[in-house]
């Protein structure tokens, strides 16, 4: 029982006993001890006390009204969570920048550019005919994440490959955008963090990454202009 005793002697406990000793009267807590009243006039007071002791035992706290009031108060407090959580979501300014338009004219065949969209790099490669052909004829069944090339580009614009340039393994940015970069074993992209190899369609071919590079929602607003987002 020693730990229990120690528990009872918490600081408020100690301090309250001091308070009680100062008031120099019997404890107001004890329901079972009748008070020693010195003056005859206190007779009424004692009745009142006994009466009160019985009453405070039963303060109607199970009353429907009390429960309803408490429930209302609790619901109100809980509803404040909504704005408090919402404020951390992307704000109106960030949402307004959620789409971006890119002019493709300067990107020659075989070249690639990297643009920013929602704070993420987006790879845009103007693929050569050989690269398109290589991507198209790859047997889909052999891929870790089977997907045909045609589904990753827009019909009639097969040379344009647009992808979020973030490795699906742990979020590094793969190499392969510039001429000097290693393009990996499949002529596409290579992530130096943990050795994931992507092909000319951005599909995972070798290494730990589980999925192909993500294609963001985009559309051609004109022949040479795309809108991402």
């Amino acid at each position: 029982m020693v730990p229990y005793q120690r528990g009872r002697r918490s600081f408020v406990k100690l301090s309250m006993s001091k308070r009680v000793s100062r008031t120099a009267g019997p404890s107001p807590f004890d329901l079972h001890v009748s008070h020693q009243c010195k003056t005859p006039a206190d007779g009424n007071g004692r009745n009142e006390e006994a009466h009160l002791a019985a009453e405070i035992e039963d303060p109607n706290r199970r009353d429907v009204l009390v429960l309803a009031a408490n429930a209302f108060a609790a619901v109100g407090a809980a509803s404040l969570i909504w704005p408090f959580v919402q404020q951390m979501n992307p704000d109106a300014g960030a949402k307004a920048l959620a789409s971006t338009e890119i002019d493709l004219t300067p990107v020659k065949e075989g070249q690639a550019i990297t643009v920013m969209w929602r704070g993420k790099p987006v790879f845009i490669r103007n693929r050569t005919k050989d690269e398109v052909a290589a991507a198209a004829k790859t047997p889909v069944t052999e891929l870790p994440d089977p997907e045909v090339d045609a589904k990753r580009v827009k019909a009639g614009k097969e040379n344009w490959l647009v992808m979020v340039g973030i490795c699906t393994h742990l979020g590094c940015v793969p190499k392969g955008q510039t001429m000097a970069d290693s393009k990996g074993d499949f002529g596409g992209w290579f992530c130096p963090c943990h050795g994931s190899h992507y092909d000319t369609s951005g599909r995972i071919r070798k290494g730990p990454a589980p999925r192909n590079l993500e294609v963001p929602p985009y559309e051609f607003v004109s022949d040479t202009k795309i809108k991402i987002g």
Binding site: E55, P59, D63, L65, V66, F72, G76
Partner: peptide, 21 residues
């Protein structure tokens, strides 16, 4: 509206609890 209703309910509940004291 919520605060007015809740305050009123709490006031009634308070009266109920203190009814015999």
């Amino acid at each position: 509206l919520y605060l007015l209703v809740t305050t009123f309910l709490l006031y009634l509940a308070k009266k109920r609890i203190w009814a015999r004291v």
